[in-house]
Design a protein around this nucleic acid. Structure first.
Length: 736
DNA sequence: GCCCCAGTCCTTTTT
DNA sequence: GGACTGGGGC
């Protein structure tokens, strides 16, 4: 038996159905832990080995480089051939490749540079300054959002509706931004997609060519696609193309960045009316965990509908712990982690998940004090570090000197006496000549002109001197001759940065070795794919499109700390989910968004389904947030879990549950010592809780009287107002 | 050009 | 509470 046959023999009937589906488009609803990636990769291998598709005629799209790599790795394990010829990659990676190959049709210089989010923001700031826009009113970040979300809807500045003055101005800025990018030969992330879409749409011959080429298109994590991505996929598909979209609407947690779950419904209608395959058997978690997840997600309306099951048995109940404070919460977690480790659990199999990054600090602190190694995901990634971005800016100027963002970044770094005034003058000249800053240098006059010329000569000579050097030597040459190395050498705290610059040289060497003459994972072997992209251009694309690992000390046996978002797609033996409080999870900012709570619920669903064996969910009655103490109420999501699958480790929450039923007189009131006094239903309010009142301002509940609709609260609003007694069913209080 | 201080913000994030 | 930014002073 070969590897593919082996793999196919372990699939369940539904998985096998998806893998061996005849030439028809299908939507695969793949629940958490249901073997989604296996299905996708086995399908591709099966298509090829049965001769139903040739490698170059398969297109497989993912969202992250990690997923693309994983797919390629698994595929190579299944097929004994070189999988180079396939188009497997991220949306952005594939569009980049497409635009390089068709740069003329795309009206782009072949050496166009890719702006990452930070580059884009600084380009926008520079633009706003030049346009003399009031940045108090038109906040750069907002402008960036506006531009990106417009592009993700497929809208150019001319397509944007200018309802009022504000949008009219936004439209103007967007238009100026388009001109600026075009002049500089730079492209932001959403532009990669939009431009590829537009070129394909406008150019019939090109479209026909690609449609004829791709007989099969497979899309991973389809619930995360935005409108533009789906539109792009549709352009690539001819009526004969076999599409397979794999996704899970219950795990759609990126609506905030433009993802449209609705695409799944549309896809079903447009391509897969008769082929919706549900993968519902979960191979990851025990029964109680899965039941809890199912009970929670059932609260969402508008689901495509799916129920996970397992044959692994119930396992352990989900443990809930209500701590007095955020400190007590982390103490509890540490205690449990210690116990698990002493029972032989590996640290790397334990994950601590939270809604917001700010929550990590306190738990990190506790882990540190306990001497438990841990690893935090998120934060600065390799290619985002300042010194790396500086080095890349020099490299980009070698490739395309009209990239003003890069120019501005390093024209005076390390400092070479080119001050603000000189640069302002240069910007004026550039504006007058409608040229890039680089183009304006030779027209510069005054005190700084000579220094600017020297800078330009330096870039030119770096380009000349490195012309025939291999990539890693080129990078090495630039880090030295730019003065970056010397600069950081002189800095007593520059050692890390020097190390990173050296690491960049290594990364360049590794890039050359792995990629050969081709580029990223989306590389392809046919003639049209062998774009004449220089190794430098390839490396720069790679740096922009794959910012590198954002996890410190990989491979080490350490407890894993990350946001729930970051945990998507991962699994751990033991999972702690922290901060199950209203306002935190669900996050208060999500409550006002349409569909916000449902997305938060899906996020909680993702959190729960990460756990294989043990799941803890914790909350704190009191938590420090934004430098203020907040008194939280337990999250509504806890109430939505099925009680039979839970085990309350703290009396107070169970006590609340009983208090509600105690009113009906069905349950004997248990005694829990000091908790006795607060057993009444007080509409969810508690002594010590922070509230807000429209007239009286911020206050704290100091005493509660009555119960149910008759609950009255004495609230201390401080200052002149003092203590007020308010009927809680009448007073409009804002819970903080 | 650099440093310090005050003011601001604060959900999630990949490309 | 803390990280980051921008402005002002030296």
């Amino acid at each position: 038996m070969n590897n593919l046959e082996k793999q196919m023999s372990v699939l369940n009937p539904t998985q096998l159905q998806a893998v061996t589906l005849p030439a028809q488009s299908a939507l695969v609803l793949a629940g958490a832990g249901s073997g989604k990636t296996s299905v996708l990769t086995t399908r591709m291998a099966w298509l090829i080995s049965t001769g139903q598709a040739r490698m170059p005629s398969i297109l497989a799209v993912t969202f992250t480089n990690k997923a693309a790599k994983e797919m390629m790795t698994r595929l190579s394990g299944l097929l004994p051939m070189n999988t180079r010829g396939m188009w497997v990659g991220t949306f952005h990676g594939l569009c980049n490749r497409f635009l390089r190959a068709h740069h003329r049709e795309s009206n782009l210089p072949q050496t166009f540079q890719i702006l990452d989010t930070a580059d884009q923001l600084s380009a926008i700031k520079r633009l706003l300054k030049g346009l003399q826009v009031d940045t108090e009113k038109f906040i750069p970040k907002q402008v960036q959002n506006f531009i990106n979300s417009s592009k993700e809807e497929g809208l150019r500045s001319s397509d944007v509706e200018a309802k009022d003055y504000f949008y009219k101005k936004m439209q103007e800025i967007y238009a100026a931004y388009e001109v600026q990018c075009q002049r500089e030969g730079v492209v932001d992330f959403s532009e990669l997609l939009l431009r590829a879409y537009e070129v394909l749409k406008a150019n019939e011959a090109l479209r026909a060519h690609y449609q004829a080429r791709f007989s099969h298109i497979l899309i991973d994590e389809f619930q995360d696609t935005n409108s533009l991505q789906y539109a792009w996929l549709k352009l690539l598909a001819s009526p004969q193309t076999v599409m397979m979209a794999v996704g899970d609407d219950d795990q759609s947690i990126y609506a905030f960045r433009g993802a449209k779950v609705e695409n799944m419904r549309d896809f079903e209608r447009e391509f897969a009316q008769h082929n919706v395959i549900k993968l519902e058997q979960n191979y990851r978690s025990y029964g109680h965990i899965l039941n809890a997840a199912n009970a929670l997600i059932k609260q969402n309306a508008n689901r495509l509908g799916k129920n996970l099951w397992t044959d692994r048995g119930h396992g352990e109940p989900v443990r809930i712990y209500e701590a007095a404070s955020d400190y007590a919460e982390s103490d509890f977690v540490i205690e449990q982690i210690k116990a698990q480790i002493s029972e032989g659990a590996a640290r790397k199999d334990i994950a601590v998940l939270y809604r917001a990054n700010a929550q990590s600090r306190i738990i990190e602190h506790a882990l540190f004090n306990a001497g438990i190694p841990y690893r935090v995901y998120g934060g600065l990634r390799f290619f985002e570090r300042a010194e790396i971005k500086h080095a890349l800016a020099y490299l980009r100027l070698i490739d395309n000197p009209h990239d003003d963002t890069s120019f501005m970044r390093v024209v005076n770094f390390p400092t070479r006496g080119i001050g603000t005034r000189t640069l302002e003058q240069l910007q004026d000249i550039a504006k007058a000549l409608n040229s890039s800053l680089w183009g304006a240098v030779q027209h510069a006059t005054g005190a700084g002109a000579a220094k600017l010329m020297a800078f330009a000569r330096m870039i030119d000579s770096m380009r000349f001197d490195t012309e025939h050097l291999p990539l890693s030597e080129l990078v090495d040459h630039v880090t030295t001759h730019s003065g970056l190395m010397a600069h950081y050498n002189a800095d007593k705290e520059g050692a890390d940065r020097i190390e990173n610059l050296n690491e960049l040289v290594n990364a360049a060497a590794a890039f050359t070795q792995i990629e050969g003459h081709a580029s990223d994972a989306s590389a392809a072997a046919t003639a049209e794919d062998n774009t004449v992209m220089s190794p430098l251009a390839g490396f720069l694309s790679h740096a922009a499109l794959e910012a590198g690992d954002n996890q410190a000390q990989a491979g080490q046996d350490a407890v894993q700390l990350m946001t729930v978002h970051a945990a998507k797609g991962l699994e751990f033996d033991t999972v702690f989910v922290l901060g199950l409080e209203e306002g935190l999870f669900p996050h208060e900012n999500s409550l006002s968004d349409e569909g916000g709570v449902e997305e938060e619920r899906r996020l909680m669903y993702v959190a729960i389904t990460r756990a294989q064996t043990r799941l803890y969910m914790t909350l704190a009655q009191q938590r420090m947030l934004h430098g203020k103490t907040r008194y939280g109420i337990k999250s509504r999501f806890l109430d939505e879990l099925s009680e039979d699958d839970l085990k309350w480790l703290t009396p107070r929450v169970r006590y609340d549950a009983w208090a509600a039923t105690a009113q009906t007189g069905e349950v004997e009131t248990p005694s829990f010592g000091s908790f006795k006094e607060t057993k009444k239903d007080t509409l969810g309010y508690r002594v010590g809780q922070s509230v807000g009142h429209a007239k009286f301002g911020d206050g704290v509940v100091v005493k509660l009287e009555g119960s149910g609709e008759d609950t009255r609260a004495y609230i201390n609003f401080g200052g002149k107002v003092g203590i007020k007694c308010l009927a809680l069913s009448i007073a409009k209080l804002e819970v903080r």
